[in-house]
Amino acid sequence: MDKRISPLSRIFLIVMFALLYLPIFYLIFYSFNSGGKMYGFESFTLDRYRELFQNTRLLIIVLNTVVIALLSALISTIIGVLGAMMINKVRSRRARDSLLSLNNILIVSPDVIIGASFLILFTIAGLKLGFYSVLLSHIAFSIPIVVLMVLPKISEMSPSLLDAARDLGASRWEVMTKVVIPYITPGIFAGFFMALTYSLDDFAVTFFVTGNGFTTLSVEIYSLARRGISLDINALSTIIFLITMVIVVIYYLITNRTKKAPDMEVFK
């Protein structure tokens, strides 16, 4: 295929990329501003970063966010893998399709609706809003994406592989741990990472189901931003950007190493 693109197209692409990254670098740039505003750069300073690392409240919130993300990704991956196995067992096409539709409801639902309905659910169940309600919600909305990442891997697995393992005397447990799990590992990784990003990225659902005592980063940024501009957020976003880049690179390496991982199209 020829790779010619006109200079005009080239400019268009450059502008698009510039626009996409502009807000992020804008934030990072002003995190070094001694002026305390997101305009009129005065002089270079690292004060914001110093402040940030002394701001224990914010650090605890970051910690909360990470704990919620890791725990919810871990638990939803386990449940999601079990769910994918169950869906894979269903033979009837119609039953399978309706199960998948049920599975996908939380993926297509707008966040506001997930948040509002979970708020009703937790209130009726008498669960105090806070850490556990946030954790449960994050697990709940991450499960379906794990299922979607793992299911293709499970269904492409040849049944003769399992037969062979059983013929050779493997117990059910051994078939599971020695054959099935290693085979679907790329799918599991992809699911885990997606669950992680869903959790880290979530604002709306958490906003609904978090009580007074518990906050995650998104919710905190929202309430800070509603009060106006605080360059602590800028410093924080620099750090988040760097961490995201590291995660992206790790993810890229993992998916490239395990060649047949779900391709980019499953991403969103």
């Binding site: 807000p23 804008y26 934030l27 997101m38 880290l200 998104s218 501009i229 976003s237 992206v248 980019m264």
Partner: peptide, 24 residues
């Protein structure tokens, strides 16, 4: 393509917050 997707992995709130500064 990956470079197009990367910004979507930055927290939505941070991006909205950046525009508070840009459009201020």
């Amino acid at each position: 393509l990956l470079l197009i997707i990367v910004p979507s992995w930055i927290n939505l709130l941070l991006k909205a917050y950046a525009f508070l500064g840009i459009f201020g």
